[in-house]
Design a protein around this nucleic acid. Structure first.
Lengths: 245, 245
DNA sequence: ATTTACAAACGTCATTTTTACGTTTGTTTT
DNA sequence: AAAACAAACGTAAAAATGACGTTTGTAAAT
């Protein structure tokens, strides 16, 4: 029997999904439900992140990609490894001691945590076997293990990163309005932004491209649609240093 | 025999030290020297990062702190966990397969990489047993394992982070001149900065405090000394959001 | 004692960006 | 045709930035 998994290293994924309609930043969690043997008592009923062991020939990144695909069917989403969690209380299920060449080792599961950025609308939860569900990041259910901490640290990283990098557009559809972007910033950061100044600032960016299209199916003045050009962005910021301490 | 170490998780430390005199950002590496049994052939002679297994009751952070202390004697230095490295080719020395409850596991060393920021002058390398040595980050020697990649990724993280957070002051003495700060930015980022504008910008920050002291022992006009006030900085930036995408 | 060398420190001005508002426009619904 | 309302544009003061020139203060040399 060939070994398949890497011992005591796992990858956990915080899947952030933005719902452009409710303007809510959500996290995808799966239900963990455990009954006693006689099924008379519920032992565990909470929500956890998805994660899995690292396979033998996988990089950590590949494990994360695989976990996301199994959960959502999606590939090619924005992914970031943001932290490893490996405290002594993260014990493995088989709490054995391992002997290698007369040296004893303790077991502990260290998890390499990733977060993904995508749109809730891209995920079909209808026929998923994991009882996966979206929860607003600001209104989480009871979360198992140390996964609430992992989620909150991912969220903190996202908050910081979205201020300096255009990752926000990974959470939006290809075509968006200026107000969509503003709503998203406000959701993530929990702040109010002046629409007139924000609009001017964004429109003046060369990598924000006005399309020949407007919103359809709205009951007010339809807004101009824009797209984000990664090509232009990348060309502009090859040598940009802005010290803003 | 009680198990002491955690299996196949290690911590590697990139120790950045700034030398204010030579204006050089350095990395502390240790020599790895291996001869053949008859001592007629040098098998390995390169430099690597310091790292170690995680101990049974340690958090990852504590391991990193311990590794730094053993190498330099220093504690309470700025420390950041910046990435985990766990590719399939990072095999352990004992390449065994591990069986736990009829399940086979592959071994691979995953390392949680940290970097530290400190001053070279704080480290006494005179009587260290590791043959540790400082190397300019832009002029590394032959580096073993995948440690060059780890160093470069740490450096990249530092470059990005120093633009938005005042971590630069961790590399400087408590009392510094404006030009010291400028030199440091220039070293790290490899750029030229206009001294007059930089000076004005920094002096206007409320958390840069002018002291009642000047440089001593310089053969030119002695410069005003300043300090960084973390207290004031923290108070100012509790609710500061600057979207600069 | 005076001069010299040189980095430290200050000043200026045009340009750009930000902040804080008021106003107009265009579409759908009434 | 009017009302409702978000989209979109405008303006002016304040602050920050970029690109320079100029003055100042100290130690060392004369």
């Amino acid at each position: 029997m060939e070994p398949e998994k890497i011992l005591n290293i796992s990858v956990d994924c915080v899947v952030f999904g933005y719902d452009i309609n409710t303007k809510s930043l959500n996290v995808l969690l799966i239900n963990r439900f455990l009954e006693s043997e006689d099924k008379k008592e519920v032992l565990v009923n909470d929500y956890v992140l998805t994660g899995y062991h690292v396979y033998k020939n996988e990089t950590l990144d590949e494990t994360a990609t695989r976990v996301l695909k199994e959960l959502t069917g999606l590939t090619n989403q924005y992914k970031k490894q943001f932290k490893a969690f490996g405290n002594p209380d993260r014990l493995m299920n088989p709490k054995d001691i391992i002997w290698i060449k007369n040296e004893a080792f303790n077991l502990r599961t260290t998890t390499i945590a990733y977060y993904f950025l995508l749109k809730t609308e891209d995920v079909d939860l209808k026929n998923n076997k994991n009882k996966a569900k979206w929860f607003p990041v600001n209104n989480l259910p009871e979360v198992g293990f140390d996964h609430e901490q992992i989620i909150l640290e991912a969220y903190e990283d996202l908050k910081v990163k979205c201020l300096s990098k255009p990752i926000i557009f990974k959470l939006l559809p290809d075509k968006f309005t200026i107000n969509d972007v503003q709503d998203l910033y406000q959701s993530i950061l929990g702040i109010e932004i002046d629409n007139r100044n924000f609009r001017r600032k964004l429109i003046n960016k060369k990598y924000i491209i006005a399309l020949d299209e407007k919103q359809v199916g709205v009951s007010k003045k339809p807004a101009q649609l824009y797209m984000f050009s990664k090509d232009i962005y990348d060309k502009m910021f090859q040598k940009n240093y802005l010290i803003s301490i």
